[in-house]
Nucleic acid binder design. Structure first.
Lengths: 375, 375
DNA sequence: CCGGGCGGTTGACACGTTTCATCCCCATGG
DNA sequence: CCATGGGGATGAAACGTGTCAACCGCCCGG
């Protein structure tokens, strides 16, 4: 069928080992034979069989990346960061989309195990899959992405989501809101629960209780789910209806915004919205979205670097758990509009030191990670 | 290191071939030994080595998907369609992001060739890479995605982009626009050139010449590029400045919209915008975006099905070139707003039979593909 | 009692590559 | 002239699996 290294050797009139050397250590082979081999390779259209290479060498050239929702730009941004680092190291990335389904996640993890990937980056579903544990037991490096490690002895790259939730809620409370909703309640994802916890803490501190907080728990964190939650809110009696919402991610927030606008609810005058992740589309929304920014690409980069370190250094590797500080980006969706549309794009009143304004801030102050070492 | 099939055999007290049979033809093996083997597999945590399987079997369980921009939701939607079909067939997808760089594309194609993928789905960069031709020469099925085949003898799944450009332009012309811009001019991508051609044809037919058309040719088809183009347009003298634009994709359109709003230009009253692709975020934009809808997921599905057919049926496979008809989805960004904000979300005046209104139409009429067989 | 057939099992071989100990040849120095 | 060394080239072995022809034991029909 396809030409093998053996055919090349025959054609070039050299031995099999020489061809292999041309491929892997070109400098250790004489110029003359090297030329002949290269010519033969070109003539035969030889392409190295990676399976055979991998079988013999015992090491693959790929890593796995498992995300919750490939349609969420947050994850494609993360993926880009991962890809950059991986490519630089000569590795390919197998991108898997679990769709937040444990079954799909498990299947993909098995697949990655069979492929003998060098390591796995994963934003896991709510429960940590046994397949994951099995992988680690086999010695495959695993780095958690946007998900805190359950204990030491494992790398993780995360964002302080309690702080993020707190930033979002504080912002709304300072704006005078007294009835607030949180969408994304008990999806089971710890990231979301932590955002929730941050919101709860802020509300409790400011208002002395949680009565003011209404929690919605959609099935999925999608635009459609956001719309549904909005419909629910609209259906509430005015006296109990929240005047502002913190959404667990930007997709929810965008759906929320869409539905509100569709029903003629004015944002932010009648209803303020804060999203989470600060995907690029947040700034381009019907009403530019206030959102909690995470260093998306950097998240992927750092996670990939940790994975590579563990994969190459082996037992010398010291596990690290990176925690980035999120930053609130205030835009129109949470600002009471000034008189007469002053400067489009949005002015702001400084909230806390961490607050960043406008869609074009490239490197917010607090974006350097907080590191804790362990194990 | 890790347990092999041989260890399992020893542990279960059976021969090596029996283990292999348990793995691949469980029904051909006695219940007793099967149980013993399965037990041994569980105890040893055995995981089949895919490289070895592939080397021996000569066939891989993966296909490659190469896209132009992973950050563009259009491609993630396509990818989802591909993934669904592939998974159903027990195949994994290696998703590669060429970033519209021929060098990166070539590198990925080489990688896929070394992996001996069953086939490649690709939205290629402007020039058809020699690496692609090499792949096909080696007998690897290749299906072009959103890109017309240069000749017969090859599968392709596309959208009639000339028609799409025409729909967009006709719509604006009917609305009374007489100076129109097209952004995405000569990026070199045929898809874009065809959209351009459609716009040109419509303008020429309606106005008898192309003087009314201003063409912008950004480097990339991104949100940032859209902003820049908008700045250019704003900088033009009012007399020559276009009153409407057709963008080669929605990212450009969103950027355009953002910058216009930022400069206080009212959309659509002072400037109308039509995008292309109809990604989900188009409907959620600052001003909901009129866009040319393509069946994104279906595009991926059909392409994957063709690939599978070619990969499995081999020479019996008859190449197919699917052409979908796009549909114009009219939203606010191109509608002269009615008095007093009647019904939010947008009413419409029927344009042609193909025009579809509102963001929530799920299966537009003309979405069934037009098929042409060849070779 | 014998031959044939069949479900179940075996084990050698092949897949394409990398590795490594070995070997060859020539130049250099003693 | 011989010993030494080193740059190049060689080819056998091994990686873990799938395949397939052969084999074994047993039952059934004659």
């Amino acid at each position: 069928m396809t030409a093998s290294i053996r055919d090349v050797a025959r054609r070039a009139g050299v031995s099999l080992g020489t061809v292999s050397n041309v491929l892997n250590r070109p400098d250790q082979v004489g110029a003359a034979s090297r030329e002949r081999v290269l010519a033969a390779i070109a003539e035969l259209g030889f392409v190295r069989n990676e399976s055979a290479r991998q079988l013999r060498a015992g090491t693959s050239r790929t890593i796995g990346l498992v995300v919750l929702d490939i349609a969420n730009p947050f994850f494609t941004d993360v993926a880009r960061g991962v890809e950059d680092v991986a490519n630089e190291a000569g590795l390919a990335v197998i991108l898997c989309n679990s769709d937040d389904l444990p079954a799909k996640e498990g299947a993909y993890l098995d697949l990655l195990a069979e492929q003998r990937v060098q390591g796995v980056l994963i934003t896991p579903t709510a429960e940590l899959s046994p397949h994951l544990a099995a992988l680690r037991r086999r010695g495959v490096p695993v780095v958690l992405l946007d998900r805190r490690a359950p204990g030491p002895g494992q790398c993780a790259v995360t964002v302080d989501d309690v702080l993020g939730g707190r930033l979002a809620a504080d912002h709304l409370l300072e704006r005078g809101h007294r009835r607030i909703a949180f969408v994304g309640g008990s999806s089971g994802l710890p990231q979301v629960e932590e955002r929730h916890a941050g919101v709860v803490a802020a509300v409790r501190e400011e208002l002395g209780g949680e009565d003011a907080l209404t929690v919605f728990s959609p099935e999925k964190l999608t635009v459609a789910a956001g719309r549904e939650a909005a419909a629910e809110i609209i259906g509430m009696p005015a006296a109990r209806r929240p005047t502002a919402v913190v959404c667990a991610n930007d997709l929810l927030a965008l759906g929320m915004l869409q539905e509100m606008v569709r029903h003629g609810v004015r944002v932010p005058e009648e209803f303020a919205i804060v999203g989470y992740d600060d995907i690029d589309f947040a700034a381009a929304a019907a009403v530019p979205l206030t959102s909690v920014r995470k260093p998306r690409q950097e998240l992927g980069r750092r996670a990939a670097l940790l994975l590579l370190d563990e994969a190459t250094r082996g037992p010398d590797h010291v596990h690290e758990q990176l925690v980035f500080e999120p930053v609130l980006v205030v835009r129109e969706s949470s600002m009471v509009r000034r008189t007469g549309r002053s400067s489009a794009g949005g002015t702001t009143t400084p909230d806390t030191r961490r607050t960043v304004v406008g869609p074009h801030t490239t490197t917010p102050a607090g974006e350097s990670p907080v590191t804790e070492e362990s194990a």
